[in-house]
């Protein structure tokens, strides 16, 4: 695990293309880890993230374009909106007492509704034409001339998310969340405030994701509803997380690092649209057929078994 950490810390002095691609990959690691907090740790599969990304992206961009407020500040407005959406929608669903997987599809309902209304409100979102930012070197407004700076920020974000995941997994919050994830009814019977903790996880996840949304816009200088509210994006994240292992600290990292570079390469060198996504699907199905809980737990199991065998071999007969 420590090896992985070392690898990522080596910043490449490579072409702009690669820096940009890896920035995006780091951003996805960040987002996938954020999703993992509610989806993996708390066990609440959902598709809300496109809304959070949009909240972050549009808040900061609109405030910047119309009122000249720096995205560094506008970002927090995005966070507030994202948290409101996430907690609000989740609370509605919890009140309705939907069965487990229904929570996810209900989320999708909110997302599509948001997507349509957002696209319709052209005067705000720019419709499908979207909003474009003019590139400039303006650190106070989160714009950097040198792409490498974006890379480092993304690295910080991703590391931060992983660190946060690690901290949560060791904390009392993480303990409660794994209880909820393991057996919801049992947890409630014991008196755990299942709704409260899940909403908290949702809030944390939403905030992180929204920040990523702002960053994304500053990186790509363009946003429109289709891009911001990307169902494909969130499904990709869920699949990365699944391959790595839901609810593990390194799962999102492993899953994303394993798949996304290949996917991006495919996307750019093989001119068949959608092939990389199809590949993600095929890989997911293959991986969980032999490693149902993801690669990280499978590897831990494997390592434990090898250690066990080695231990037995060492013992005198």
């Amino acid at each position: 695990m420590i090896l992985l950490l070392g690898l990522v810390l080596v910043p490449p002095r490579a072409s702009v293309f690669w820096v940009h691609t890896f920035t995006m990959i780091l951003l996805f690691i960040y987002w996938t880890s954020a999703w993992n907090i509610i989806g993996g740790f708390a066990g609440e599969i959902n598709f809300y993230h496109p809304l959070f990304i949009a909240a972050g992206a549009y808040s900061s961009t609109l405030l910047f374009m119309n009122y000249r407020i720096s995205p560094w500040i506008g970002m927090w407005v995005g966070v507030a909106i994202a948290v409101a959406i996430g907690v609000g929608c989740a609370w509605i669903c919890y009140r309705a007492r939907l069965p487990h997987l229904s929570f996810a599809l209900a989320a999708m309902g909110f997302v599509y509704m948001g997507l349509y209304i957002g696209t319709a409100m052209e005067w705000v979102t720019g419709g499908t034409r979207g909003l474009t930012l003019r590139p400039a070197s303006d650190p106070a407004n989160m714009m950097f001339g040198d792409k490498a700076t974006y890379y480092y920020i993304a690295l910080v974000l991703a590391s931060g998310a992983v660190a946060l995941s690690w901290w949560i997994s060791r904390s009392r919050l993480g303990y409660y969340m794994s209880a909820i994830r393991g057996n919801l009814l049992a947890a409630e019977a014991v008196g755990v405030n299942t709704v409260g903790y899940r909403l908290l996880a949702m809030a944390i996840s939403a905030s992180l994701t929204a920040i990523g949304g702002t960053f994304y816009t500053q990186l790509n200088l363009f946003i429109n509803p289709q891009v911001a509210v990307s169902i494909t994006g969130v499904i990709s994240m869920i699949l990365f997380c699944a391959i790595g292992g839901f609810g593990t600290v390194w799962g999102p990292v492993v899953g994303t690092l394993l798949l996304m570079p290949i996917g991006e390469l495919l996307r750019l060198y093989v001119a068949v649209p959608g092939l990389h996504l199809m590949l993600y699907g095929i890989i997911v199905i293959t991986v969980i057929s032999f490693a149902p809980h993801g690669l990280v737990p499978w590897f831990q199991d494997y390592a434990a078994r090898k250690r066990g065998a080695a231990g037995q071999a060492k013992e005198p007969g």
């Binding site: 499904i235 699949l239 092939l275 699907g281 095929i282 997911v284 199905i285 969980i288």
Partner: peptide
């Protein structure tokens, strides 16, 4: 585990839609 169904069916979504 019922969670695996999510992964399986989402994988299928990507496969069918992109296929």
């Amino acid at each position: 585990e019922i969670l695996m169904v999510v992964q399986l069916t989402l994988g299928m979504v990507f496969i069918i839609e992109n296929g």
